[in-house]
Amino acid sequence: MGLLLSLKKKFGFILKLFFKKDKMRIGIYGPPNAGKTTLANRILRDWTGDVMGVESEIPHETRRAKLREGVKIEVDGKSLTIDIVDTPGIATKIDFHDFLKYGMSEEEAKRRAKEATEGVIEAIKWLDDLDGVLLVMDSTEDPYTQVNVTIVGNIEARGLPLLIVANKIDLPNASPARIKSAFPQHTVVPISALKGINIENLYRAMAEKFG
């Protein structure tokens, strides 16, 4: 497994030039409550009329990765077929006390914390089976966090194409410019996944980056 990953990182770009895939497997990553499932639902509603999962203010509501295959996006005469993987929120620390704030019993909160920890591990494992990543960040918060830096580092180490999605620009204190400043080496697309603001520009960026 280690040798295969090493070869993939070393020759992945060359292989993609000669063996272009019919569809790309794209993971949606980010910290809890950044809007990953909201974005997955927005993409599916726009192109299939379906949804991926439940949107919730409770952190780590998505505890297991969810896969939706064969989503076809068409923009500016270009078409892109993707498999979408909506992953659990990445966190460096998960405390069951955080779940108690939402009215859960201590037993339920501890169970949710355990499931969330397992979800983080699963999300990291999925990186080995992806062709690209949409990294969702909350543009109302400081982007230069240990979680975001760790995710970006993991993606870069694997040589995966990356688009950073600066979400929640519909909120008054949003600042996509902070995200662009924190990660200037990557393309940042400001959107509101909830309201659909600037979503067409994200689809164009996806067709360019992943097509």
Rank of each mutant, 00 (worst) to 15 (best):
D142C: 09
M137P: 04
M137V: 13
F96D: 08
M104A: 04
V133C: 11
S139F: 00
R158W: 15
G132Q: 06
T117Y: 02
G119E: 04
M104D: 04
E106R: 08
D129P: 01
Y102K: 07
G159C: 06
D98K: 06
R112L: 08
A109F: 11
S105Y: 05
I151D: 00
R112T: 10
G119V: 05
G153S: 14
Y144G: 10
L100S: 07
M104I: 09
I124N: 01
H97D: 13
L127R: 09
A157I: 12
E141Y: 04
E122R: 12
T140N: 11
L134V: 12
S105M: 06
T150V: 08
T117I: 04
D129T: 14
V136W: 00
S139E: 02
S105F: 09
A123Y: 00
K110Q: 10
G132N: 05
G153L: 09
D98S: 10
E107A: 13
L160P: 02
D129A: 10
L135V: 11
N148H: 01
D128I: 12
L162W: 03
G103W: 06
Y102A: 12
T145C: 10
L160Y: 08
E156N: 13
W126D: 03
A123L: 11
L162P: 00
R112W: 00
E122G: 02
K125R: 07
S105W: 07
E156C: 11
V149Y: 04
I151M: 12
W126S: 12
L130S: 09
W126T: 14
I151A: 03
G159A: 10
D98R: 02
L134M: 07
G103C: 12
H97V: 13
K110L: 02
M137I: 14
L135T: 01
T145I: 09
L130R: 02
G119Q: 01
W126G: 04
L135F: 15
D131S: 13
T117R: 07
T150Y: 08
Y144W: 07
L100I: 15
A116C: 10
K110R: 04
G132F: 11
E122H: 13
K101C: 09
I151R: 00
S105N: 11
L160F: 11
G153I: 09
R158C: 15
R158I: 15
V136A: 04
V149E: 11
V136G: 00
D142V: 15
Y144A: 14
E115N: 03
L162V: 10
E122V: 08
F99Y: 03
K114A: 12
F96V: 05
D98A: 05
N148W: 02
E141R: 15
N154D: 08
D142H: 09
R158G: 14
T140D: 09
V120M: 05
R158H: 14
Y102H: 13
E156Y: 13
E107Q: 10
I155D: 01
F96N: 01
L100D: 02
